[in-house]
Amino acid sequence: MNLLEDFSIGLFFWQTLLFVFLLLLLKKYAWKPMLTAVNDREEGIRNALDSAEKAKLEMQNLQADNQKLLKEARAERESMLKEAREIKNKMIEDAKDQAKEEANKLVVQAQASIQSEKKAAIAELKSQVANLSIEIAEKVVREELSNKDKQIKLVESMLGEATLN
């Protein structure tokens, strides 16, 4: 078989023409849209994976944040409780102080009123004693009115004795 003799110009012509035509047709209508679609899809998958990774990271961050918040909340609660306890103690302390003060005031008032009562009582007592002494003196005077000189002497001695202490 002679290769050159076998070479058919006609077939070569048709093959080249048809192949180039097919190439251009497929390029425009099949390969370009296909490869673009595949590239887009791959891009999409890559992006989806990236965003999933990002979401995971964000999730972790969020969880860390939550943990932090929880910790903070707990600490705050702790401090609030402590504060409350302190306030309570202080209030009790204050109340005690106030009560003591009040009691002291009352005692002082009571003492003052006792003093004044005592003074009044003494004054009353004095007047009573005076009245009593006058009554006694009246009786003595009535009995001993006869002996006037003696009487006067007696009154004078008595009065001398009954000087107000």
Binding site: Q15, L18, L26
Partner: peptide, 28 residues
Amino acid sequence: LDFSITKSVVMIIITGLLMFFLFRGLAK
């Protein structure tokens, strides 16, 4: 000079059409 549509040319055309419809469908 021979530009006949021979058996091979027919097969090339058939293959071309097959490829076009196959891959056009795929692309679509």
